[in-house]
């Protein structure tokens, strides 16, 4: 577990790497992965990559396969073809909990909070893979610093929080283990416009701190504005890829999202 404390952005070496390293710079990448749900193909060979300190967004309409892609990375969905590499190491045959221990954290669309438990109990469960008391306390301070609203409600059951506060708990809980990669699945889902700005502001802050982020979002413009790069996923295929500016100007983007 050494090196967990170092913020991912600072890391340029690849400790414990094995297997073929195709992209020297990527901290996380999928290579031509295919996923099926009971025989029905949902991802038809998807390749995406994330470099250290980078924020990359994955855009696509409902049912395109964005969540499936993130679940596949987490080992929560079996990949039947292709490869997933984390810091040069193959991870697509590992179990979810092993992948989490390597440092990839997924904040699911459904949040999956432990609702009867308090805010703080939820956060502490996020630090399950940490053992050092001091480190856990530091993580807690970091999260409360990021979301002061949560500190005021630390003893309150997660089920009694507003949607925005629940999203803060979900993100905060994900940060507790000091991930090397953070994957956020529609963090602004179901939030009022003002709260959307707040959540995306948090993502911006995390980006500033150098945490590599995979971001799935429905707020296309804001996401592209925030991210360094973006992918457009359409019915299980990457149909466009580039910087925010490039994508906003591309024909693909216009047909996919603006209907022009």
């Amino acid at each position: 577990m050494s090196g967990r404390q170092s913020r991912p952005g600072a890391s340029t070496s690849f400790p414990g790497s094995n297997g073929v390293r195709m992209n020297r710079h990527a901290i996380l990448e999928t290579k031509d992965i295919k996923v099926r749900y009971s025989g029905l193909a949902v991802l038809h060979g998807v390749s995406v990559s994330l470099e250290p300190s980078e924020t990359v967004c994955v855009l696509g309409s409902n049912g395109a396969g964005k969540s499936t892609l993130l679940r596949a990375i987490m080992g929560a969905q079996r990949v039947f073809d292709g490869q997933i590499l984390f810091m040069g190491r193959e991870i697509h045959r590992l179990r979810t909990e092993q992948i989490v221990r390597l440092g990839i954290i997924y904040v699911p669309e459904e949040k999956m909070l432990f609702t009867p438990l308090s805010v703080e109990e939820n956060l502490l469960l996020g630090a399950y893979v940490l053992n050092d008391k001091k480190e856990i306390q530091d993580s807690l301070d970091f999260v409360y610093n990021l979301f002061p609203a949560l500190k005021a409600r630390r003893g309150q059951a997660a089920s009694t929080l507003s949607g925005g506060e629940q999203q803060m708990v979900a993100i905060g809980r994900g940060l507790m283990s000091r991930p090397k990669v953070l994957m956020l699945d529609e963090p602004s889902l179901g939030l009022a416009p003002l709260l959307v700005d707040e959540v995306l502001g948090t993502v911006r802050e995390l980006k500033r701190q150098g945490i590599p982020i995979f971001l799935v979002e429905q707020n296309v413009r804001e996401a592209l504005d925030l991210a360094d790069r973006g992918y457009i996923l359409q019915t299980g295929r990457i149909v466009a890829h580039g910087t925010g500016k490039e994508l906003l100007e591309s024909d693909m983007f216009r047909t996919a999202f603006l209907g022009i």
Partner: peptide, 19 residues
């Protein structure tokens, strides 16, 4: 706590690294 988390939401618990 890990048992409780598994009881409440096992997929969520796995995303926390709980076996």
């Amino acid at each position: 706590k890990a048992l409780t988390a598994t009881a409440l939401n096992s997929q969520g618990a796995r995303y926390m690294g709980i076996p």
